[in-house]
Amino acid sequence: MPEINQAAMDFLLTRRSRPAKTLKAPGPDRAALMPLLTAAARTPDHGKLEPWRFVVLQGAALGRMAKAVAVAGARLGKSEEDIVKASSAFSNSPLCVAVIEVQKDSPKIPAIEQTYSAGAVCLALLNAALASGWGANWLSGWASHDRGFLQAALSLAENESLAGFVHIGTEGATPPERPRPDLDAITEWVSE
C-alpha cells in the first residue's frame, strides 16, 4: 500500500467552494497570493507549453471589470438582473485572478489538452486558496464567453480565451453541504 497523505485526502474529500457573493475583504496580498499561484502553476502541462497565464485583478481594476460587464450586458441585450449579478461578482470581490488560456502552436499537444490544462489551473488555484484558509470560487458566466468583453476588459490576444475567474477573499459565511454525485451511477468498472 502507498503511504497516504491523510491531511491532503481529508481536504480533498471535504473541500467546498465558497459562493463569490459571500467573500469579503481582505483578500490575499501579493505575498499570500504568490504561493497560491505557484501551486496552480504546478498543474499537469503536457509538453511544458504553459498554455495559460494569470491576470490578478484588485482595487480599481475590479470596478473597471464590473463596468465592462455592464457595457457588454447592454450590448448583448441581457436583463438588468443578469447584468447586476455578473457585474457584482467583480464589484464585491476582494481579489480575482483571471486564468487566461493561451493556445500555443504545437505539433504534439492538441488544443484540447491545452484547454484541459488551463481548466486544471483554475481548480488548482481554487484548491490552493481553500487549503490556505481563504474563501474562493471559480466562476465563468456569460460575459466570459463574449469576445468583445474579453478584448475590452482583459485585452486578450486572438489565441487567448478565459478559463475562469477565481475570486479569493475572506470567507463571510460557510455554505451548507450540497448533494454530491452518486459514484455508483457514474462509475463503470472494466476488468476484461
Rank of each mutant, 00 (worst) to 15 (best):
P2T: 07
E3S: 11
S17L: 06
R18K: 03
R18E: 01
P19R: 01
T22W: 11
A25C: 03
A25D: 13
A25W: 02
P26W: 05
P28H: 12
L33R: 07
L36A: 04
L36C: 09
L37Q: 13
A40L: 07
R42W: 11
R42P: 00
G47Q: 07
L49F: 05
E50S: 13
P51I: 01
W52V: 04
W52T: 05
R53V: 04
R53D: 08
R53L: 04
F54R: 10
F54I: 13
L57K: 05
L57Q: 13
A61R: 10
L62G: 03
L62T: 03
M65F: 01
A68V: 10
V69Y: 08
A70N: 04
A74P: 01
L76M: 13
L76S: 12
K78Y: 05
S79A: 09
I83Y: 05
V84I: 12
A86K: 07
A86L: 03
S88I: 00
S88A: 14
S88V: 00
A89Q: 07
A89Y: 04
F90C: 11
P94W: 04
C96P: 00
A98R: 02
V99Y: 05
V99K: 04
E101T: 11
E101H: 15
V102P: 02
Q103D: 12
K104T: 03
K104S: 02
I112N: 09
E113M: 06
Q114M: 03
Q114N: 08
T115F: 08
T115Q: 08
S117G: 06
S117R: 01
A118V: 07
G119P: 08
A120L: 11
V121S: 08
V121T: 06
A124N: 15
A124H: 15
N127A: 06
A128G: 12
S132V: 11
S132W: 08
A136D: 03
N137P: 00
S140I: 13
W142M: 06
W142D: 02
A143W: 10
S144F: 04
H145G: 08
H145M: 09
R147S: 08
F149S: 02
A153F: 01
S155Q: 14
S155V: 00
A157C: 02
A157F: 00
E160C: 11
E160N: 10
E160I: 07
S161D: 09
A163Y: 04
A163K: 05
V166L: 13
V166H: 11
H167V: 09
T170A: 14
T174H: 09
T174S: 12
P175T: 12
P176K: 14
P179S: 14
R180P: 02
R180Y: 02
D182T: 09
I186T: 14
W189Q: 08
S191Q: 12
